[in-house]
């Protein structure tokens, strides 16, 4: 497994916006493969435990909800994602990626479910010109695992077309 050596472990952890170019990975590729290849290519990590996620993907996108989602919708989205992305429920070979994905989902949930933090996040985010919707291990994993999941049919943001791949 790629997590056995410190370098690859850390690079699997890191989440750099610079890798947006690798976004041409087909949508149906398994998330594990995607991150595995990503970690072999990206051997140098600028910050060595980049636990914070890149700002290029918004927390709303991580949870797959609109920026106007209610608190209730946020909770629902979080639980639905947990049901498919939590390492306890994914196949054995996806544990590593799903661990990273779940931590991102959880931290997005923590921010957005707290009105104060959400307001602060919104202020900071809207000051940016636009979100560079880059692909990342998370998006691919989330999309891959979420595809065909009914919730997105009536989610206000349509993921299929919003992604720029």
């Amino acid at each position: 497994m790629f997590a056995s050596s410190p370098t690859s472990f850390l690079s699997a952890v890191s989440f750099q916006p610079t890798t947006a170019l690798k976004s041409s990975t087909p949508r149906n590729t398994s998330s594990t493969k995607f991150v595995a290849s990503y970690s072999t290519k990206e051997t140098k990590t600028p910050h060595f435990f980049a636990t914070k996620m890149a700002s290029s993907i918004s927390l709303y996108e991580i949870l797959g909800i609109s920026t106007s989602a209610s608190c209730h919708e946020i909770k629902t989205a979080y639980r639905k994602l947990a049901r498919v992305c939590h390492p306890d429920v994914v196949a054995m070979n996806q544990k590593e990626t799903s661990t990273n994905d779940f931590m991102k989902i959880h931290s997005a949930y923590l921010t957005l479910s707290n009105p104060e933090k959400r307001a602060q996040y919104d202020r900071e985010t809207y000051n940016r010109p636009k979100w560079n919707i880059s692909s990342s291990s998370l998006t691919s994993a989330t999309i891959a695992s979420m595809s065909g999941f009914p919730v997105y049919a009536h989610a206000s943001r349509n993921w299929e077309t919003d992604q720029c791949w």
Partner: peptide, 20 residues
């Protein structure tokens, strides 16, 4: 991790350089 395994990582950086 989800199976409750704890790992501790430590590295050293000098100011200004992001590399360990």
């Amino acid at each position: 991790d989800a199976s409750n395994v704890l790992r501790v990582l430590a590295g050293v950086r000098m100011p200004g350089s992001p590399k360990p």
